[in-house]
């Protein structure tokens, strides 16, 4: 799996690529240059606010490359993705506060299971309520997820 992370100011057209991450369940492809981003099979828009992700339940198929685009309705949040017990995932990005841009990460799981995500940046009294699940179904033909569109 290749994970790219970018943040962009809404007022500007150019992308600011802030990092390239790879993780243990990565596809054999080497880490790509930021300018060589994979074309996602699917884009999922996720909105963060105290103390909720919307949607908080997302379903995608294993083998799919999904771009997760995260925005905040209020303060800074974080997006930490935790894989099933036997799967390591290395995604932990900052979500800029309201009107400060979009955080984007590519997620291309190969292993089915429940990938739990949570806010990784303290955001208030209910911080630990802020979580969700990406359910990765085996390929092929799982029901379409609730959260994404292309």
């Amino acid at each position: 799996m290749v994970v790219l992370m970018k943040r962009r100011a809404e007022t500007g057209r150019s992308l600011i690529l802030s990092g390239v991450l790879t993780c243990a369940i990565a596809l054999p492809a080497p880490a790509q240059e930021a300018t060589d981003r994979p074309e996602p099979d699917r884009v999922v828009e996720i909105v963060a606010e105290r103390f909720l992700f919307t949607p908080s339940r997302i379903t995608i198929e294993a083998g799919t490359t999904a771009e997760l685009r995260l925005t905040s309705e209020d303060t800074d949040h974080g997006f930490l993705l935790v894989g099933p017990d036997d799967v390591d995932v290395d995604i932990n990005i900052a979500i800029p506060k309201r009107n400060r841009g979009v955080a984007s990460v590519f997620f291309a799981p190969t292993e089915p299971g429940d990938y739990r995500f949570e806010c990784s940046r303290m955001c208030g009294a209910g911080h630990l309520y802020m979580s969700g699940v990406i359910r990765v179904t085996p390929t092929p033909s799982a029901p379409a997820g609730e959260g994404g569109s292309r």
């Binding site: 105290r50 103390f51 429940d114 739990r116 009294a125």
Partner: peptide, 28 residues
Amino acid sequence: LVTPELNFRAGMMLAPMGIINERHEPPT
């Protein structure tokens, strides 16, 4: 944390009553 549906919590906690008790940061 066990599953998304069932998690356990213990300690000093906010009573889950109304809007403000659990969500009271001034900008909110």
